[in-house]
Design a binder for these strands. Structure first.
Length: 611
DNA sequence: AGCACGCCGACT
DNA sequence: GTCGGCGTGCTC
C-alpha cells in the first residue's frame, strides 16, 4: 500500500488545485469525485492527477510547503464514484474553456456536473474506460434553410449516420423551439432520445445524464453541451444567430463558440443551422472556416408598404385597412403583428397624471379593459385599474396607447362579418388573428396562415442599441417564413437601408451592415461589453457602477454610461448599465472580468454581455 | 463561493 | 467606545 498525493479541483470559482493524501492504490483515477475537507467544510472535488508521495524526512503525515511553511495535508475523506464522473478530455476541455473565457476552471467544472453530482451523492455507474472517442477531423458548415423542417431534412441523414457509432447533440436556443422540434423529430429515430434543459428538476437531469452516456440523441438548450457524452459524434446548433445562446451570467459563454471548440477538440463535425447566419458566422463563411449549404429560398414574400402623409405614424392607417380588405375578400387568413399585449400601453389619471404601474417593476403593464386590471409582464403581479383615480379621488383613469386588444376591437367595427381573434383565443377558422412577436417562437412550425402584417417595426427600430437593424432583419426574415403568400411590413421610414434589403440577394444586407459596423467601429470589428448592475438599493447601485466606470476609464477611452437600463426597475431591483468599446484584443474580456471581480457584494447582482 | 480579518464611518 | 458595512485575502 502506497501513499498518494492527490491533486484536487474544487467546484468553486478558482483555478487553483489543492493537495490531499490518500492511503491505497485502488479507486482513484483522474475524473473521480472525492469528498474532502476544504476550509473546514466537506466539499466535493474532482481528482485531476495523482502522484506517489515520497516522504521527505521522517514525517508520517504527508505535508507540503506553502509559502515557506510546512503544512500537514488533509486526507481524502471519501470516494464518490465507482469509476469516474468526468473523462480526462472533459477536464482538459474545462481548462480550455477557462483559458478561452478567462474565467476560473472551477466554474466550468461546476457547469459540467449535474447538481446531484455536486453534492456528496454516490454514483454507482461502472464506465468501461476513461478513453475518449475521437473523430477523424473537424469540419464545420452553416446550413441555411427557411424553416426548421427544411433544415432538418438537410441534416437528418448525417445525424442518423453519426448515431450508428456515437451520440449526437442538437442544441436549441429556447425551450419552445425544442418542444416543437421534438414533435417533428421523434418518430424518425428509434434510438434513445434525451431532452436536457434547465426547467428540469435536478432529479430529472441526473436521470437523463445517466442514460445519455452513449449512443444517444440529445436535444437540449445551451447548458446541455456541458453534459456531453464521451462518444459525441456530431453537434447541430439550431438558429445559431439567436442571442439566447449567450449566457449573461458568469461564466459568460456562448454556446455556438463552445460547440465549435468542442468539435475541434474531438475532431468531429459541427453543423450550424438557421434561417440566416449571425454576422460573425457570415464572416466565418466568407473566410472559408465554415462551408455554406443553402436551400434556395422560394420567391420573396416580404412587401414593404411605405406609410406617407396621413398614414404615417398611424396604427389604423388606410394602408392597413386596404390590405386587410383585399386579403379577406380573397378568402384568406391573416395575422396582424403588434408587439403590445392587452388593450393599451398606459393607464393614467386624467386629473393628477398618476401612471399605474407594478410596484416592483417600471415597465408597462398588460392592461385588460374588461377586468380593469394590469398584469406586470415581468413578475406577473396584478394591479387593479380603478374607474376613478385612487390617488387623487378626482379624475377618470384613462387607458391610452395601442395594444392588440384595442386593435382587435377597432377591426371588429371595420369588419363586422369577419372572425377576429387574438393569438391565444384563435380558432382554426379565425380570419384575422392579432399577435405579438410571440408568434415567432410558437410558430417554429408554420401554421396555415396566408399572410402577415407587421405594424410596429418602426417601434422595434426605435429601441436603442447598435444591433437593432440587424435584429430587425432577422426578425422580419423569420416572420417571412411563417406565411404562405406574403408578409407586409408597414413603415414610415421606407428609405432606410433595411427596407431596401428585404428582398433580393440576402448577402446584400450583410455586406451593407458590415460596412456600417466597420465605419462606426462596432462589432464584429470592435468588441463591446455591456455591464449591468442591479440591486434593491438604487444609490448603492449607482455609486458602485460610477466607481466601476472610473476604474475602467483609466485604461479604456471608450466607456459610456452609466445608463438606466430598460426596464430600470425590475422585480424590485434598480438597473444601471455601462457600455465599453474596445479594439479587438486578446485581453479585453479579461480586463473587464478583472474589474468586475471586485463587485462581490451580496447585494449587487451582475450581468455582462460581450459582443 | 464562503468565511475571517481588518479598516473606517455612524451613533448611543 | 463599538457596531456593522464592505474590501481583501485564503482555502491543501
Amino acid at each position: 500500500m502506497s501513499v498518494k498525493l492527490v491533486k484536487v479541483a474544487t467546484l468553486i470559482s478558482l483555478d487553483k488545485e489543492f493537495d490531499y493524501y490518500y492511503f491505497g492504490d485502488v479507486g482513484l483515477t483522474p475524473g473521480v469525485r472525492v469528498l474532502v475537507d476544504f476550509n473546514g467544510k466537506k466539499q466535493v472535488g474532482i481528482v485531476l492527477r495523482l502522484k506517489d508521495y515520497t516522504t521527505s524526512g521522517n514525517c508520517v503525515i504527508p505535508s507540503i510547503n506553502v509559502a515557506g511553511k510546512v503544512k500537514p495535508l488533509k486526507p481524502i475523506i471519501g470516494i464518490l464514484d465507482v469509476s469516474f464522473t468526468l473523462t480526462v478530455e472533459q477536464i482538459k476541455f474545462s481548462e480550455m474553456l477557462s483559458t478561452f473565457y478567462s474565467y476560473p476552471r472551477g466554474d466550468f467544472l461546476s457547469m459540467m456536473l449535474p447538481a446531484y453530482l455536486k453534492k456528496a451523492n454516490k454514483l454507482e455507474i461502472q464506465f468501461n474506460e476513461n478513453q475518449d472517442k475521437k473523430g477523424s477531423s473537424f469540419s464545420g458548415e452553416f446550413i441555411k434553410g427557411s424553416s426548421f423542417r427544411e433544415r432538418y431534412f438537410m441534416w437528418k441523414i448525417e445525424v442518423k449516420k453519426k448515431l450508428l457509432s456515437g451520440s449526437v447533440l442538437i442544441c436549441f436556443p429556447q425551450l419552445s423551439y425544442l418542444d416543437a422540434a421534438l414533435k417533428v423529430i421523434k418518430d424518425d429515430f428509434n434510438c434513445r432520445i434525451v431532452v436536457m434543459h434547465s426547467k428540469k428538476s435536478d432529479k430529472q437531469i441526473i436521470q437523463e445524464w445517466k442514460i445519455s452516456r452513449e449512443k444517444t440523441l440529445i436535444l437540449g438548450t445551451r447548458l446541455s453541451i456541458f453534459y456531453y457524452p464521451q462518444d459525441l459524434n456530431l453537434i447541430i446548433v439550431e438558429e445559431e444567430s439567436d442571442r439566447c445562446y449567450f449566457q449573461e451570467e458568469k461564466p459568460f459563454y456562448n454556446l455556438r463558440d463552445i460547440a465549435i471548440m468542442l468539435c475541434r477538440v474531438k475532431g468531429i463535425k459541427c453543423v450550424l443551422s438557421g434561417n440566416y447566419p449571425s454576422l460573425l458566422v457570415y464572416q466565418m463563411i466568407k473566410t472559408n472556416i465554415l462551408a455554406l449549404r443553402e436551400q434556395k429560398s422560394p420567391e420573396n414574400k416580404i412587401k414593404v408598404m411605405k406609410l406617407t402623409g396621413y398614414s404615417k405614424g398611424r396604427v389604423m392607417s388606410p394602408v392597413l385597412l386596404n390590405i386587410l380588405e383585399k386579403i379577406i375578400q380573397s378568402g384568406k387568413k391573416v395575422v396582424v403583428i403588434w408587439n403590445k399585449k392587452g388593450f393599451g400601453k398606459t393607464a393614467f389619471c386624467s386629473n393628477c397624471g398618476y401612471v399605474f404601474k407594478c410596484d416592483r417593476c417600471s415597465s408597462f403593464l398588460r392592461l385588460s379593459l374588461k377586468s380593469r386590471e394590469g398584469v406586470c409582464p415581468h413578475c406577473q403581479q396584478k394591479v387593479s385599474i380603478p374607474q376613478i383615480c385612487s390617488k387623487c379621488n378626482n379624475g377618470y383613469v384613462k387607458i391610452s396607447g395601442w395594444g392588440i386588444e384595442k386593435i382587435e376591437s377597432i377591426l371588429r367595427k371595420n369588419f363586422p362579418e369577419v372572425l377576429i381573434n387574438t393569438w391565444e383565443n384563435r380558432f382554426l377558422n379565425s380570419q384575422i388573428v392579432l399577435s405579438t412577436s410571440e408568434i415567432v417562437g410558437s410558430l417554429y412550425e408554420p401554421e396555415a396562415f396566408d399572410a402577415g402584417i407587421v405594424l410596429d417595426i418602426d417601434g422595434f427600430l426605435a429601441y436603442p442599441g447598435y444591433h437593432v437593424t440587424f435584429d430587425a432583419f432577422l426578425y422580419l426574415k423569420r416572420l417571412e417564413c411563417l406565411f404562405k403568400d406574403c408578409l407586409y411590413v408597414l413603415t414610415g421610414n421606407g428609405d432606410y437601408y433595411l427596407f431596401q434589403c428585404l428582398s433580393g440577394f440576402w448577402e446584400k444586407f450583410y455586406q451593407l451592415e458590415l460596412n456600417f459596423r466597420k465605419e462606426l467601429s462596432l462589432p464584429p470589428f470592435f468588441e463591446i461589453a455591456k455591464i449591468i448592475l442591479r440591486s434593491e438599493d438604487e444609490g448603492l447601485t449607482l455609486r458602485t457602477i460610477g466607481n466601476l466606470r472610473n476604474r475602467i476609464a483609466v485604461k479604456n477611452n471608450y466607456v459610456y454610461g452609466p445608463f438606466k437600463e430598460e426596464p430600470f426597475k425590475l422585480r424590485g431591483k434598480y438597473r444601471y448599465s455601462l457600455v465599453i468599446r474596445s479594439r479587438k484584443s486578446e485581453n479585453f474580456r479579461e480586463s473587464i472580468k478583472v474589474e468586475i471581480k471586485n463587485i462581490r457584494s451580496s447585494k449587487i447582482q451582475l450581468a455582462v454581455i460581450f459582443e
